[in-house]
Amino acid sequence: MEHRNTRDRTSEARSGNRARGDARRAAILDTAVEMIARHGSRGVSLGDIAQAAGVSKTGLLHHFPTKDALLNAALDLRDAVDRHVNPPAGVVGLDVFTEVEEIFTGWLERPATLGLFTGLLAENLTAGDPLHDRLVTRAETVHANLVTALGAGVERGDIRPDADIDAIAYTIVAFVNGLETYWQLDPRIPLLDMVASWKRAMVASVASPEALAASA
């Protein structure tokens, strides 16, 4: 019985250590996201992030051995909640434009992650930059997801069969990335009003006559 109790206490101690380690890692990552969004990844060092997170640099390196590892983890955090990268099931056709509205609404609730992406994108436009290949692959994934969703809308009949869904997908990405950057420059702009106006214009230009009649 005593041996079992000792083993149980050891297991509980290990679980507690893991929980504390996970919490410390999350706190470091949250701090990194806020600082990178505000200053850019090139404007902060690992030491700066460690100090702001209230840990030693050695403690930070235990969870993130390199700055690239930390940047990738920060982008993982953004992508985990980004509906562009992980679109909800069943979003097809004209629903895509409603989904864009949901994306911006979510970003307003998480402005730090919004600034994080625009900063990392601007810093990794050149081949050889730490996140360049990942961001290119990410862009290709987003475009492919949109083409699939829009193509399903053509089959369902709510998007015109002659619509250039490849070009529409690029237009959506350009609008989202552009407005995201613009909002970072001037957060006073009526973001959701602009998205709603864009949505109406896009639906009017790509919807099938039947879909337009049904929504009238």
Results as ranks from 00 to 15, higher is better:
H3N: 07
N5C: 03
T6I: 14
T6C: 03
D8E: 12
T10H: 08
A13L: 13
G16Q: 08
D22F: 00
D22L: 04
A26T: 15
D30P: 08
V33S: 09
V33Q: 06
V33E: 08
E34V: 10
E34K: 14
A37P: 07
R38S: 07
H39R: 14
S41F: 02
R42W: 06
G43P: 09
S45T: 15
L46P: 01
G47R: 14
G47F: 00
A50T: 10
A50P: 04
V55S: 02
K57P: 00
T58N: 13
H62Q: 08
H63D: 08
F64W: 07
P65H: 04
T66N: 11
N72L: 07
A73Y: 06
L75I: 14
V81K: 07
V85K: 08
V91N: 05
G93A: 03
G93S: 01
L94Q: 06
T98F: 08
E99C: 00
V100K: 06
E102P: 00
G106Y: 08
F117K: 06
G119C: 12
G119K: 09
A122Q: 10
L125S: 07
G128N: 13
L131K: 05
D133G: 10
R138G: 03
H143D: 10
V147L: 01
T148K: 08
D164E: 10
I165L: 15
D166E: 14
D166L: 12
A167K: 11
I172H: 04
F175P: 12
T181A: 13
Q184H: 15
L185K: 03
P187D: 04
I189G: 05
P190Q: 06
P190I: 00
D193Q: 11
A196N: 02
S197D: 14
S197H: 04
W198T: 15
K199T: 13
K199A: 02
A201K: 05
M202P: 00
A204C: 00
S205N: 12
S205E: 11
A207H: 08
P209Y: 12
E210I: 05
A214N: 07
